[in-house]
Each structure stands twice: as structure tokens, then as C-alpha cells.
Design a protein around this nucleic acid. Sequence first.
RNA 1: UCCCCGAUAGCUCAAUUGGUAGAGCGAGCGGCUGUUAACCGCUAGGUCGUAGGUUCGAAUCCUACUCGGGGAGCCA
Length: 502
Amino acid sequence: MDATPTTINRLCDHVGKSVTLSGWVYKTRSSGKVAFIVLRDGTGLCQCVLEKNEQTESFFGDVKKLAQESAIVITGEARAEERAVGGHELQATAVDIVDAAHDYPITPKPHGTEFLMERRHLWFRSQRQWHILRIRATVVDAIRRFFNDNKYVLIDTPIFAPAAGEGAQTLFEVDYFGDPVYLAQTGQLYVEAACMAHGKVYCFGPTFRAEKSKTRRHLTEFWMVEPEIAFASLTDVIDVAEEFICSIVQRVLKDHREELIELGRNIEELEAIKKPFFRLTYSEVADILHGPKAKELLENDLKVKTARIEELDGKIEELDAVAKSNVKQWQKDKAAAEVIEAREERSELQEQVTNIPHHMDLAANFEWGSDLGGSDETIISRLHDRPVFVSHYPRDVKAFYMRQDRDDARLVENFDLLAPQGFGEIIGGSAREEELDRLVARMEEEHLPQSDYEWYLDLRRYGSVPHGGFGLGVERTIAWLCGLKHIRETIPFPRMMGKFYP
RNA sequence: UCCCCGAUAGCUCAAUUGGUAGAGCGAGCGGCUGUUAACCGCUAGGUCGUAGGUUCGAAUCCUACUCGGGGAGCCA
């Protein structure tokens, strides 16, 4: 009987027929005369059953001993089986060992992040990482599709940039044949030039920021998509951002419901992401921070988290008792594993609880004129179940190219988008200053050398029009969509402060 | 740049609070025909991050350093 080569995700089309799968051993279990090999082939997982009989006797022993991540080609009959992952399994009749692996470091047991990050090149074979990177691929496709379908023209902006786009302290300097140039922090200035040629444009690529931030929200190399629209007001740009986020959320819900559930993401929360989003001004946000709602939220937090810590203390004590009592070994193991988990949750909560009074202080004493801090954003974001646009910040804390509010000279026409449930900022955008004189004056205030920006000022000399755009951080968006607490899992090979291996 | 926490077997963690270093997983060997983090038995595996100090005695206390984690500032 000839076997048809196929992949695990197509197994349902071959029930009752002989097929061949090529992949890697994800895990194995065996008894004396039957072995189960869970195979991983890049499209999914499949349990392969190997029984010891005349047909398999010659290789049964070798296959039974196959270690994790060994590469094999396996032939057998596909059949539906409720007990197996994915609902199908393979009754194996022949196994060809391509490469027998030894001592694969990442076991089905828990590992620490340092250990896993050092082995990132292997880690993303694991299910959870595999799901996340698949969702990333879809998010990237959804981004491109949104702009392409809406007739934006893709403009690739340079990575070697002669001058700063944002803060000058966060630049990576590179020696460019003896001259200093910088890795791009944004393509925005270039995309502004392009929108005067094409009307609606976007750039999409990696950006680099030498921020000395070791937090769960920061990478030194991350991907950003930046649309720019000619003849657009601030409201027009915000409308686009709203439509854009909705389209990404819908697409991920449509294509990856299973993966999101697997990752433990609350689906209802994502389904609630619909127009209209909340639109607040910076001044309104300042009022909220000073007001009773913010205080209540944090006070309630303090209560809930303190109660949870007490609950965990009780649980830890109970589990400890179980682990030391006279029960089966596996029950002890389970209890011990739960203790570790509970302790982790406890220490995280403890830190949050310690920070709450400080955050309350920051919110209550928030001064009009300073930028919103991380904790302030979290408060606003947590008070809303849909994303929140915050607009009209004080111009002193914002970039030189942002358009001055014509009704209130203290403000600029900018906005941030805060993802809900405390995830925080995923978009920053603005209307751009289109008047040459105002722009030059602002650059002088910031002590920016006009000579570096002559080309940019040309855009205001020859047919300058109102325009604007925004930048979306791809990794932060993925972290929010997947419900991940750390951004490092959203990119195949994360670059962080002090970390660039592998 | 600053603040907090951590480093014990290949991995994840213990060590009754200063008194001879332990378990599970993984690895090796053996057993088991339906397992799902399989199970059962045996074996091997450690200069307790580094360097000093306190002490009769240090994984445990002190100091410095290195590395890692979280946060502040700044940001997508």
C-alpha cells in the first residue's frame, strides 16, 4: 500500500488511509508493548501509536527509546481518536529515524525564563511559543492588509538615519564610513515626505531605541507600523487608528480563537473591542487621576490583592502539609509545583501592593504639564473596557513636529492609544505642524540644528498641507492580544537592554 | 543613572532559620498493551555565582563584585 505524504493539520482528510508524516518527537510514553510518540511537524501535534508486533518488532526497541526532538519520518494509518491531541492519531507501521536527538534541554517540565531565553532558538518549538509566533504572523498580515486594502502606499524608510526623530539620548550610533549615523527610531519624518507624493502612505519595519529600560514593556529593537495621511486632521487620524485596531482584533479572533484560548486569553474581553473607543483629553485624564474613581480603583485593588495574598498564604500552608505528608509521590510533586506557582503569584502581588500607595500618591498629586507616567496610564486603561484615546498633551513634553493647538497654545494635537485592562500604550500619533514659522520656532526651542532638517522644512515650503499619522508598536499589540505579561515572547529573537544572544 | 528581589545537581526547587547537601524531573539500566506533565524499581550526578570577612563551625550572617529578574525615569 502506498502512503501519501501529508501534514498533521490535513490528517482529517486521510482517515482510514495510509499516510506519511515528517517531523520531530515532541514527547514519548511507552509501555512494554506499546509506545506513544507525539509528533510535531510545524502544522500541529499528532499522537502516533506504535504497537509491538511482527511488522514493527525490528525497530520497536529503537523507536521506543527515541528522545525528545529526534527527527523522524513515520508512516501509518490515520484515524479519528478522541483520546489523542487534535482528535486524530496515526497507527504506525514504519518509522525512519532521520536524526536521533540526545539531551534536548527544554523538557515538558517548567523552566525559568533566563534558561529559556538563552535557548530561544529551541524555545519557540514549544507549543505556547509556537501559538504566539503564529498569531504574530497573522497580526503582521492584518496590518499590511488593512493599509493595502485602504489604498495606502507602502514606503520603506531608511534604517541609517542622519539625525534624531525623537529623543536624542536613545539613539544607537553607528560608524558610517567615518561619519556618525543612527539606527532609525522612527520612519515618520520620511513618511511625511512620502505622503506629500502619494497622499496616504505607511512604513513598516524595525526601529531601534537605546532606552535603558529593563521592563516587561521594552525592547531595543521592535517593529512599528506608521501610516501618514495628507489633508488629515487629528480627528481623521484617530478615526483611522480606531478602524485599524478593530480590524486587527477581528482578524485575530477569526483566525486564532483556539490559540487564544490555549494561551488563556479572555476572549470576551477581546470581543468587546468595538467602535467607538473612548476619547479623552489630557486635561480630562488629569481630572480623573485627581478624582474619586482613581482612588477607589486603587483602594479596591489594595483590598482585593491583600485578600488574595492571605488566601495564597493559606493555600501554601495546606500544600506544604500535603507535600510533606504520607501520600503518593505524584501527589507530593503536584503539591510542590502548586506551591511554587502560588509563591510566584504571591511575590508579584506583594510587589504590587507595596507600589499601590506610591501610585495613589502619583495620581493624586499629578501635576498638569508633566507627562503621564506608566502607573497613570495603567489607571486610565483599567478604568475602561475598550481602548482609550488620550489627546491634547502639553506641548512642552512632546515632540517638536506635533501641531500646536490653535485654540490653546499650551497644547499639541497629539494622541496616545491605551489598550484596556491595564496593558497601556500601544499607539502614539499626532497631527503634524504644517506652518513653517511655527515649526522652525519649535525647533529652536528644542535646540535642534536646522541644517539637519532642511529637507524636512522643504515639505513646509512647497505645498504644505495639514497632515498626520501614528505609530503602532507591533510587539505591544501582540502582547495585549495574547494577554502576555511580557513583551519578549512576542518576537522571535528579542533584543533587550544587555541581551542580544542568540 | 537610581530603587527592590534573587543566584544550591543538566532543569525546577527544598534544607527545621548558624551544626555532615535533599527531592522530583531529565540522563542511564530494568519492568509494564491506551498513555496524556504516564507509572514502578535501581544507578550516576554538587568547590552551594565570585572574592573577602565574622564564627569552634557558614548554603544560611556582613561587605564588595558579577550575572539575572522586576520597577522608576523615558517610551511603541
